[in-house]
Design a protein around this nucleic acid. Structure first.
Lengths: 152, 152
DNA sequence: AATCACGTAACATATTGAGTTACATGAAAC
DNA sequence: GTTTCATGTAACTCAATATGTTACGTGATT
């Protein structure tokens, strides 16, 4: 596995859900170029956290159960079970070797600071912010197409 | 694989090397609770970067080829080939989907900031700093032992 | 010549995210 | 009530990769 993209997948799914009242796992999987089971599995945590709802049967599927403005990317990360941010880490957690203790202390300090900053950044970005960014990209795309049409 | 601990291993090895003129892969492996081949493989990058030397044959082994005060943890990370810091990332690097573009932009921004901070932190810590920390831990350990002896 | 130690290839192992198949459950439509 | 649709979940496979291990080649010292 290269990288854990569950947060990326989930955000992508949430924004697509924001564009429609309900959407099925199959449709989402098509949007995300993945598998419906992956969608259900990944979103299970969001359902438990109350961010989304899921309905079985005819007309079922996924729908938002939260206000986009009040949910941050950090909240989504938490709902996913707080997957590890870092690929690097210490070899031993509580080593007897004093050398390793010194190494661990330095590494832990730097990693902790970076993690705090990352969490803080993710905490300040709401799903509504992402949605707004998407809408802007849409508008820009339309504008570009229009210009092209004028040129043609 | 749980986590990439090459940086941790390497720093551990470097500090042990700082305590002795030369040390063999086998001895280092014993210190680090790993395998001599892992030591050689991991340190290959450091040798190419000129941070350490290695000598074959009788009396051979590893020795430092740098001033601990002028080498930062970031330098060591670079010598290792800059292994990825983060376990999380985007699903697709250049997606056509505008939703995913918006998601990627936000994620990239946050990750980039965290990475810059991490690199900056690692850049300000020198091997000499780590060595000093180790020496302090040694001194503290001796002091404690002494006190215990007095009590006993 | 023997021994020691690194250099490296090749293969095994373990972990984990992702993909896939299969089947059960439940809700709506007919 | 039966069919159809959609989720829930277990179980399996696949892929990537750090680490562990074995084996053998190379070069330096004794």
């Amino acid at each position: 596995m290269k990288r854990d993209s569950r947060l990326s997948i989930t955000l992508h799914a949430l924004l697509h859900m924001a564009e429609r009242k309900t959407i099925t796992s199959e449709e989402l999987a098509a949007c995300l170029s993945t598998n419906p089971v992956v969608v259900r599995r990944t979103m299970a945590g969001l359902r438990e956290a109350g961010l989304v709802r899921s309905e079985k049967g005819h007309g079922g599927g996924w729908s938002l159960a939260c206000d986009l403005a009040t949910v941050s990317l950090a909240d989504v990360h938490a709902a996913l079970g707080e997957p590890a941010f870092f690929a690097i880490g210490n070899r031993t957690e509580s080593p007897g070797c004093l050398v390793e203790q010194a190494v661990n202390a330095a590494m832990d300090g730097a990693l902790r600071e970076a993690e705090l900053l990352l969490l803080q950044r993710l905490g300040t970005i709401s799903l509504a912010d992402l949605s707004r960014d998407f809408q802007q990209r849409m508008a820009l795309g339309r504008q570009k197409t229009k210009e092209q049409n004028h040129v043609g």
